[in-house]
Simulated scan of single mutants.
Amino acid sequence: MAKRIQNLNEVIGGYDVVLSDVWGVVHNGVEAFQHSCKALAGAREAGATVVLITNSPRPAPGVIEQMKVLGVPDGTYDRIVTSGDVTRHLVAEGPKKVFLLGPERDLNFFDGLDVEIVSKEDAEAIVCTGFFDDEKEVPEDYTDMLTAWVKKDVPLICANPDLIVERGHKMIPCAGAVAAYYEQLGGKTRVAGKPHKPIYDEALAIAREARGEFEKAKVLAIGDGMPTDVRGALSQDLDLLYISDGIHVAEYTVNGQTDEAILQSWLKSENAAPKFWMPRLA
């Protein structure tokens, strides 16, 4: 059973490295959670190395800029690894003619990669960073386009495995929802972000660069997403601090408050065993 904690300081003494999710833990896409930033800065002051591990399709420099705009203070973390970073390796190893399924602002994802951006008809691989318009669209809006690619056996490389994220007080679908639908239609997908192993390997390698060797038992993962943060951490045998007031909050909230019995029951039904939980990182 996950233990309820009030403060990250209660347990940080047992860990050398923190792998913290970003969207839903450090910010909500509109503003930074200052209490969470302080908690991570406090973990660093206590001697832990903090690596942010995010399913953002943007390479790290773009996420760093975004976090500054949202008000994440300097000193919150040591390093960052993004799904965009590790997905670029998949793209580099794949077909050279690619189509971007996602907003035009994500075209810089391809900077420095030896690929050609082509039309959907000429594509030998699809790189999905999200929706053309994530405020209005759902995966089913792309059925005709996706079905045509399935027939041609075109692989879809998913740069953001998240299904949904919280943007302010709205839930917004992500590239992972498109990838899941593509698989449902019979298509093949390639994914490197959470919950998959490549992003954890990269995060742990970056942590070793920053502080030297450490034991896996001394790594604490923090996150709010069941299919990504939770599944990923537990599949890598990492201790997990579950943040309950994230994308799954409706599953166990009664009269605006987390009902711990319902939360524990829900975690059990998901076959998930975080070591700790708290509503928001503090």
Rank of each mutant, 00 (worst) to 15 (best):
N9D: 15
V17H: 10
V25S: 05
V25F: 08
N28K: 13
N28V: 02
G29K: 12
G29H: 10
G29T: 08
G29M: 09
V30T: 14
E31P: 00
E31V: 09
F33C: 02
Q34W: 07
H35E: 10
S36M: 05
E45F: 01
A48Y: 14
A48V: 08
V50T: 09
I53D: 11
I53Q: 15
S56K: 09
I64G: 00
E65R: 14
E65I: 04
Q66M: 08
G71N: 03
G75K: 08
T82P: 01
S83W: 04
R88D: 10
L100T: 00
L101R: 13
E104I: 01
E104R: 13
R105A: 12
D106N: 10
L107G: 00
N108A: 08
G112D: 13
G112W: 06
D114P: 12
K120V: 05
E121F: 07
E124C: 12
A125H: 05
F131P: 05
D134E: 12
E135D: 08
V138P: 05
P139F: 12
P139L: 10
D144P: 04
D144K: 11
D144L: 04
M145G: 04
A148W: 14
K151G: 02
I157W: 12
I157F: 11
I157A: 02
C158M: 03
C158I: 07
A159W: 02
I164Y: 10
G168P: 12
M171S: 05
I172C: 00
P173F: 03
C174S: 10
C174L: 03
Y182S: 02
Y182M: 03
Y182V: 03
P195F: 15
K197C: 11
I199G: 04
Y200Q: 03
D201M: 15
R211C: 13
E213G: 05
K216Y: 14
L220Y: 11
A221L: 02
I222R: 13
G225L: 00
L238S: 06
L238T: 06
L241M: 06
S244Q: 07
D245H: 13
G246D: 11
E251W: 11
Y252M: 05
Y252F: 15
V254F: 09
Q257T: 14
T258R: 15
T258P: 11
A261C: 01
W266P: 00
W266T: 03
K268F: 01
E270V: 06
N271I: 01
M278S: 04
P279D: 13
L281F: 09
